[in-house]
Simulated assay, not measured.
Amino acid sequence: MIVRILTEGQFEVPDTLVDHLNELDNAVLAALDSGDEAEFRVSLAALLGAVRAGGTPVAHDYLGTSDATLPFEDATLDEVRELLQHDGLIPG
């Protein structure tokens, strides 16, 4: 799976990490639903950190599409809501 973090680039994430990313995505969604800014910040940082730690940066000249697009670290709740798909930020 190719995951883009806005303003940072793309990461190739192994299939073995996708379930964990979905758990972290659910925590971001719960924080968005409740409007809890502090929990949103913690959850988003955890999701982005997991992608950075478990993924491999994709070459800058790669022209393929991303399977998921994640917000930048300082995104607002409203900016993240605009990125949401029907199943959250991470598909699956």
Rank of each mutant, 00 (worst) to 15 (best):
M1W: 05
V3L: 07
I5P: 01
I5G: 01
L6A: 14
T7R: 15
G9C: 04
Q10P: 00
Q10Y: 10
F11D: 03
E12V: 09
D15A: 15
D15M: 10
D15R: 04
T16S: 14
T16N: 09
T16L: 00
L17H: 10
L17Y: 07
V18G: 01
D19L: 10
D19T: 13
D19Q: 14
H20M: 10
L21Q: 08
L21G: 09
N22V: 08
E23L: 11
E23R: 15
D25V: 10
N26C: 00
A27H: 13
A27D: 07
V28R: 03
V28E: 02
A30E: 14
A30D: 08
A31M: 02
L32V: 01
L32C: 02
D33H: 11
D33Y: 01
S34L: 01
G35M: 03
G35W: 07
D36Y: 00
E37Q: 00
E37G: 03
A38D: 12
A38G: 09
A38N: 06
F40A: 01
F40M: 03
R41H: 13
R41P: 00
V42M: 03
V42A: 11
V42D: 09
S43T: 05
L44W: 04
L44A: 09
L44V: 00
A45F: 06
A46I: 01
A46V: 07
A46T: 14
L47E: 02
L48S: 06
L48V: 06
A50F: 04
A53T: 13
G54K: 15
G55H: 12
P57Q: 11
P57M: 07
V58W: 09
A59E: 14
H60E: 15
H60G: 15
D61L: 15
Y62E: 15
G64D: 12
T65I: 10
S66H: 09
D67P: 05
A68F: 08
T69E: 08
L70V: 03
P71Q: 06
E73R: 14
E73H: 13
A75C: 05
T76P: 05
D78G: 01
D78K: 12
E79D: 07
V80G: 03
Q85V: 03
H86M: 01
D87S: 12
G88Y: 10
G88N: 04
L89K: 11
P91V: 07
P91C: 01
